[in-house]
């Protein structure tokens, strides 16, 4: 799975936000706030087509956290992305 195209991550002040552009802006009228981990997950899925397990592996490589915490964070992130239809369903 990967994040659909036409989303950009920007920083406003000390907030990290995801903003839709082009055809996604016509579909989704809002913004999404992310923390640093969310930013890493988002940017990773923008660049690569990964399974949930592969994504968890990327996080474990980068951060010193428990596998249980990573699984929880990744699941929570993916749930929010699915809710807002940010994931490219063709690749699920």
């Amino acid at each position: 799975m990967r994040i659909k195209s036409h989303y950009v991550i920007k920083e406003i002040g000390n907030q990290i936000v995801v903003v839709p552009i082009e055809k996604e802006a016509m579909r989704f009228n809002g913004i999404i706030s992310l923390n640093q981990t969310g930013k890493f997950l988002f940017e990773t899925l923008q660049k690569e087509d990964l399974s949930k397990e592969e994504l968890m592996h990327k996080v474990l490589e980068r951060y010193e956290v428990s596998k249980a915490q990573v699984e929880k964070d990744v699941e929570s992130f993916l749930e929010k992305c699915m809710e807002k239809a940010l994931i490219d369903e063709d690749n699920l």
Binding site: V8, K10, I12, G13, Q15, V17, V19, I21, E22, A25, M26, N29, G30, I31, S33
Partner: peptide, 17 residues
């Protein structure tokens, strides 16, 4: 940020974003 963004006319192009 959330309130402002909800209440503006948003551009479509990344360049203007």
């Amino acid at each position: 940020i959330t309130h402002v963004f909800k209440n503006i006319q948003k551009p479509l192009y990344e360049h203007f974003i």
